[in-house]
């Protein structure tokens, strides 16, 4: 594949794009059409292996796994996007202000940030959920807030460097206000690190959602989500191993695709 400037994209980048397009296509179709009703039970068909009628087999309630993966991945994606949106937008604002103005508030917020990021994030999410209770909205909120520090840190460190650059000094000289300098002059210069951070953040959100749902704290039954399906599959690993494979692969491919793309973008910019 040839880029506008004549260089070729790396193999990994192209592979990432292909995997992601495939996965997104499956999810997109899932919003409008699934072969079966993902929540319709059929005891007669329970735990049947993959066949022409049920391409990925059925689960312990006789539900079609393909349909559930399509719907479940959609749910997982929507949750992940919402989490990243909350974390990245608030994190960018916090990072921009602390990085640009510095001072004691910056010190305090960054110390707090250090403390929060040094904790394993799933733990914090657990504590959060223990207070607010399980459910999709609660984990969007909990994980969204937990994602703020990492974006704040990325954006802040860019701002700390960029605000010393001469073009920012120049903008000050021209009489541009602080907000204009921060969001018109400096912010576009952070996209080099922000875009890969968004992709990686999406991956982390998918993994976190899956993890919490796996522990039974995320999406509640009967709604399907990839982590939830893996939790159910664990009990039937002996009888119907295909049950675990499908949602697990879906998560893996999603994460793989995005991280290959993000890796490609980073190499690109050197």
């Amino acid at each position: 594949m040839i880029k506008p400037n004549g260089n070729t994209y790396s193999f990994n980048y192209v592979l990432g794009l292909s995997i992601t397009s495939l996965v997104l296509l499956i999810v997109l179709i899932g919003f409008f059409y699934t072969p079966y009703d993902p929540n319709k039970m059929n005891v007669a068909l329970k735990n049947s292996p993959p066949s022409l009628r049920h391409l990925l087999g059925t689960d312990n309630f006789g539900r079609d796994i393909l349909s559930r993966v399509m719907k479940g991945a959609g749910t997982t994606y929507i949750i992940a996007v919402a989490i990243v949106f909350i974390g990245a937008s608030l994190g960018t604002i916090v990072g921009a202000f602390t990085g640009y103005f510095g001072g004691w508030l910056d010190e305090v917020i960054m110390r707090l940030n250090d403390v929060l990021t040094s904790f394993p994030s799933i733990l914090l999410a657990l504590v959060f959920v223990s207070i607010f209770g399980p459910g999709s909205y609660n984990i969007i909120f909990a994980l969204g807030v937990l994602f703020i520090p990492s974006y704040a840190r990325v954006v802040r460190s860019e701002f700390v460097v960029l605000k010393e650059r001469d073009f920012v000094k120049n903008a000050e000289l021209m009489g541009a206000g602080s907000l204009r300098i921060m969001f018109v002059h400096i912010l576009p210069n952070t996209k080099r690190v922000l875009i890969p951070a968004l992709l990686i953040g999406f991956n982390n959100a998918v993994l976190a959602e899956a993890g919490l749902s796996f522990l039974g704290l995320g999406v509640q039954p009967p709604e399907a989500s990839l982590g939830r399906m893996l939790a159910e599959a664990q009990s039937y690993l002996l009888d119907s191993p295909w049950y675990a494979i499908a949602p697990g692969l879906m998560i893996t491919l999603t994460v793989l695709g995005f991280s290959l793309i993000s890796g490609g973008l980073e190499n690109e910019q050197g």
Binding site: R165, D166, F167, K169, N170, A171, H185, P188, N189, K191
Partner: peptide, 12 residues
């Protein structure tokens, strides 16, 4: 400024 690469905003 000394370094015109630094004094011109690279994204504009």
């Amino acid at each position: 400024f000394q370094d015109p690469f630094g004094s011109l905003n690279p994204t504009k």
